[in-house]
């Protein structure tokens, strides 16, 4: 579904990604694990067309994404919940979630998509009329993911979905991600904390200084001392 091959990205002249390759198959849950500054966010931003690639390839369902503007990539079916997941502060929760049903009208009808987004995060139903600025961090995260979900994406990119959240909210977000995955959508999570990696993950890629240094199952990662050393330093 998503295939990143030998992706290189320079920011302000210095190489940030130095040949990142990874793949997410249909219905797969893949985790990109690495410490802050390793290149996780840059990888996701490059997929979304926000960072220009200096080399390599990004393909989504066989289609070349390089050079496409972000809104076109979103409309192809990639939902993105960025790390600073602030919702649109002056839009209500309901407006936040309704927006992508209009920008990507194909697929299932808008009502079904909105209902589905709230089914994944039922708590949001209480806050429909509330403005984005009046939500807690966890609620904002839920809105951000629900909003990406309302795009009816085939692939969901989540950047640090548990970052800075209270331990009480984390299971709720994790449940939501599990539900999204259970319905057959592919999910790529960027994560810096090994403890947040869901047990049901299909593959983990460890990224360090812009390079993928490990790729395999969670069990294989735990058995790999070199990769574990990097991951432990991050957590």
């Amino acid at each position: 579904m998503l295939e990143i091959r030998d992706l290189r990205v320079d920011i302000a002249g210095s190489p940030i990604l130095r040949g990142v390759s990874l793949a997410v198959g249909a219905g797969e849950l893949v985790c990109l694990l690495g410490r802050n500054g390793a290149g996780k966010t840059t990888t996701l931003n490059a997929v979304m067309g926000h960072r220009r690639a200096a080399g390599g390839a990004i393909r989504f369902r066989g289609r070349d994404l390089l050079g496409l503007p972000p809104h076109r990539i979103a409309r192809l079916g990639i939902g993105f919940s960025p790390e600073e997941s602030e919702v649109f502060a002056e839009l209500t929760v309901a407006e936040n979630v309704a927006l992508p049903t209009w920008t990507r009208p194909e697929g299932r009808p808008a009502e079904a998509r909105i209902a589905h987004a709230y089914a994944v995060f039922p708590k949001l139903r209480q806050y429909l009329a509330r403005g984005g600025a009046q939500l807690s961090g966890g609620e904002r995260k839920m809105v951000s993911i629900a909003r990406a979900l309302a795009l009816d994406p085939e692939l969901l990119l989540l950047d640090e979905p548990f970052e800075g959240l209270s331990p009480l909210v984390i299971p709720e977000i994790a449940r939501g991600i599990g539900a999204i995955r259970a319905e057959g959508r592919a999910v790529l999570i960027a994560e810096s904390n090994l403890h947040h990696v869901p047990e049901e993950v299909d593959r983990v890629h460890v990224i360090e200084r812009g390079e993928i240094v490990f790729g395999g199952t969670l069990a294989a990662l735990r058995a790999d001392p070199a990769a574990m050393a990097i991951v432990a330093a991050a957590a």
Partner: peptide
């Protein structure tokens, strides 16, 4: 709605498919 979303944060509006 799209107009207000881009006022708040144009980048995030693009991520949701707003031109």
């Amino acid at each position: 709605l799209a107009l207000r979303a881009q006022r708040d944060n144009p980048r995030k509006a693009e991520y949701l498919g707003v031109e």
